[in-house]
C-alpha cells in the first residue's frame, strides 16, 4: 500500500475522483466564463475572450468618461501614520515661532479670547488638515485664508505639532457645566447621527476630528450652521454636513452650549 498504487490510473478511486472533480471544474468554468456572460442580454461582449476576461474580473479601464467638473475645491489632505509622528524639539520650536502670528486671535497660550477656536492641545492632525484646507481653498475664511496661503507643508506640520504640544488649559470663559443633551450622548441613530463623542474624542477619536470641549459657543454654533447650510464643505465625504443637516436648530444650540461649558480634560490623550 504505497502512494505508487494510489496515484495511478489503474486505481479506480483515483480515476473516478480526479475525473469527477476535473469534469465538474470544466463544466462550471464553461458555464461561468462563457455561457452565463452571454446569457446577459444587457451586456455586450466583443468576442469570447472579452467575455472570459470580464467574468474573471480582469481589471479594465472604464470607458473614457471625463470626471464631472468640480466647481468648488475639496479637501485634498493626505495623512499617513508617518506625517506627524514624533516631532523633534526643533520642529516644535519652529512651530512656536511661526505661531506668534496666530496669537492675536488664538491667544498667546493657544486659548482664544475672540471666539476663535482654542488650539492649545488640539490634535495635531486636526490643525494640519484645517491649515491645508485653508491654503487650498477647500475651507475659506476672510481672516484665516490669507494667513494660510503662504505656509509650506513643513511649516504647517510644525505649527500643528507645536499646538498639539501645548497643555490643554481650561477655556478663558468657562460657564457652569451643563448636563449632557441627548444629541451628544446618544446621537440620533434613526437620523444617522452617531454620538458626537464617537469621533470628537470623549469616547473615541477619528482622525481629523477635533475635540470640542471648552470651544467658543458662538464658534461651534456658526460651524454647525455652516455645515448644515453647505457653506462649509471641507469635511471629507460630507461626514459633518450629513450630521449637521439632520440636526434640529435646538440640537445645534444644545450641543454648542454643552461643549462650550466643558473642561477639555475628558478628551482622549494623544499617544
Amino acid at each position: 500500500m504505497s502512494t505508487r498504487d494510489l496515484f495511478t490510473f489503474r486505481n479506480r478511486h483515483f480515476t473516478v475522483g480526479v475525473g469527477v472533480i476535473a469534469g465538474m471544474l470544466i463544466v462550471t468554468i464553461v458555464a461561468g466564463f462563457i455561457v452565463l456572460p452571454f446569457a446577459q442580454p444587457w451586456v455586450q461582449f466583443a468576442n469570447v475572450w472579452d467575455a472570459i476576461c470580464s467574468a474573471a474580473g480582469v481589471p479594465q479601464r472604464a470607458a473614457t468618461v471625463t470626471a464631472p467638473e468640480q466647481t468648488r475645491r475639496l479637501s485634498e489632505v493626505v495623512l499617513t501614520s508617518r506625517t506627524l509622528s514624533r516631532p523633534s524639539q526643533e520642529a516644535i520650536g519652529r512651530g512656536a515661532t511661526l505661531a506668534q502670528r496666530c496669537a492675536i486671535c488664538h491667544g498667546p497660550t493657544g486659548i482664544s479670547r475672540a471666539d476663535s477656536p482654542n488650539l492649545a492641545g488640539q490634535y495635531a492632525a486636526v490643525i494640519y488638515k484645517e491649515l491645508h484646507d485653508f491654503r487650498s481653498g477647500a475651507r475659506t475664511n476672510a481672516v484665516m485664508s490669507p494667513f494660510a496661503v503662504n505656509l509650506t507643508d513643513q511649516e504647517i506640520a510644525d505649527i500643528s505639532n507645536y499646538y498639539a504640544y501645548l497643555p490643554r488649559l481650561p477655556a478663558y470663559h468657562p460657564t457652569p457645566q451643563l448636563p449632557k443633551p441627548n444629541i451628544v450622548i446618544y446621537g440620533a441613530p434613526m437620523r444617522g447621527i452617531a454620538p458626537c463623542g464617537a469621533c470628537h474624542g470623549s469616547l473615541d477619536n477619528k482622525t481629523g476630528s477635533p475635540w470640542l470641549e471648552g470651544q467658543s459657543e458662538v464658534y461651534l454654533k456658526a460651524q454647525l450652521q455652516a455645515f448644515a447650510a453647505g457653506e462649509r464643505r471641507n469635511d471629507i465625504s460630507q461626514q459633518m454636513r450629513n450630521i449637521a443637516r439632520a440636526m434640529t436648530p435646538q440640537e445645534i444650540e444644545q450641543a454648542a452650549a454643552y461643549y462650550a461649558s466643558q473642561p477639555p480634560d475628558v478628551v482622549k490623550a494623544v499617544d
Binding site: M24, L25, T28, I29, A31, G32, F33, L36, P37, I52, S54, A55, A56, G57, V58
Partner: peptide, 17 residues
C-alpha cells in the same frame, strides 16, 4: 466588487456540492 462573476459562479456551484 473585486472578484469576477465567473469565479463567484464556480464557487457557488461547488458550494452546492
Amino acid at each position: 466588487p473585486q472578484v469576477g462573476a465567473g469565479f463567484k459562479f464556480i464557487h457557488s456551484a461547488f458550494t452546492a456540492l
